[in-house]
């Protein structure tokens, strides 16, 4: 029996009558790295929006550590230990890298703890760049900081929306290493297109196609799952 930290049941979301997510259920065990894959437009980012509180579902429930958080606002969920990162980098360009991280530390804890911010800076591998304005960072560094902001909230459960999007292979490798180091210490829902990374990192994988979960299980099961193969047919990554 696994202990579910985040439990999603029967989640449904409509946009102007169009069903974007239909009856999505999901459980994240404590410390697991759970990957969410699926073709473009499958509803992965919508699910992240619902879980983080940026959108409210039309039906279904979300529970964090057994507590219903379906109707809570974004900041309340962060305070309870559920934080997200963004697919499209969302930083504070006029703040230095360190000040960005200090804000993240302050947001969740209410205290501006510069020492912790510095520790987070080193953790995401931006140590030497602390004094640079976030607006002046290169793309790869911006992605690192994006991830760093989510980590610095100290949240136990992280929703990471394509943390490696647009990164060069060696930069992406750095993120993979970082996530490997986090494994077991935080519970992570990872949305990612890079299948090599997904199969290397994930404990379990859920596949989302056209707003529905078609399969959920260990990486080997997913790799062999006929429906998943059908959904990804022609998508060379799975073959």
């Amino acid at each position: 029996m696994i202990e579910a930290v985040l439990r999603v049941s029967g989640l449904q979301k409509r946009f102007d009558g169009v069903l974007a997510l239909d009856d999505v259920s999901l459980e994240l065990a404590r410390g697991e790295l759970h990957a969410l894959i699926g073709p473009n437009g499958a509803g992965k980012t919508t699910l992240i929006h619902l879980l983080s509180g940026a959108l409210k579902p039309n039906a279904g429930a979300i529970a964090l550590d057994g507590r219903d958080i379906t109707r809570l606002g974004m900041h309340q969920r962060v305070r309870l230990g559920l934080a997200r990162s963004y697919q499209i980098t969302s930083l504070f360009p006029n703040f230095t890298v360190l000040e960005n991280l200090a804000l993240a530390v302050q947001g969740a804890s209410g205290r501006a703890d510069r020492e912790r911010a510095r520790a987070e800076l080193d953790a995401v591998g931006l140590g030497p760049r602390g004094e640079a304005l976030a607006g002046t960072l290169a793309h790869g560094e911006r992605r690192q900081l994006e991830l760093g902001l989510a980590l610095a909230t100290g949240a136990r459960v992280l929703l990471l929306d394509e943390p490696m999007a647009g990164m060069a292979p060696e930069e992406a490798m750095r993120i993979v290493t970082l996530l490997e180091a986090l494994k077991g210490r935080r519970t992570i829902l990872l949305v990612e297109h890079d299948m090599d990374a997904v199969f290397r990192l994930a404990d379990r994988i859920t596949t989302l196609v056209q707003g529905r979960t078609i399969a959920s299980g260990a990486p080997e099961e997913i790799r062999r799952h006929p429906e998943v193969r059908r959904a990804y047919l022609g998508d060379g990554m799975m073959v």
């Binding site: 969302s90 504070f92 804000l103 993240a104 302050q106």
Partner: peptide, 24 residues
Amino acid sequence: APIGRALQGIRDNETRMEALGFAT
């Protein structure tokens, strides 16, 4: 003070501030 930082963070990127746990 920290509240001043938070204020300027909200000015620059309010959504992200909420996603960091601030009651904006």
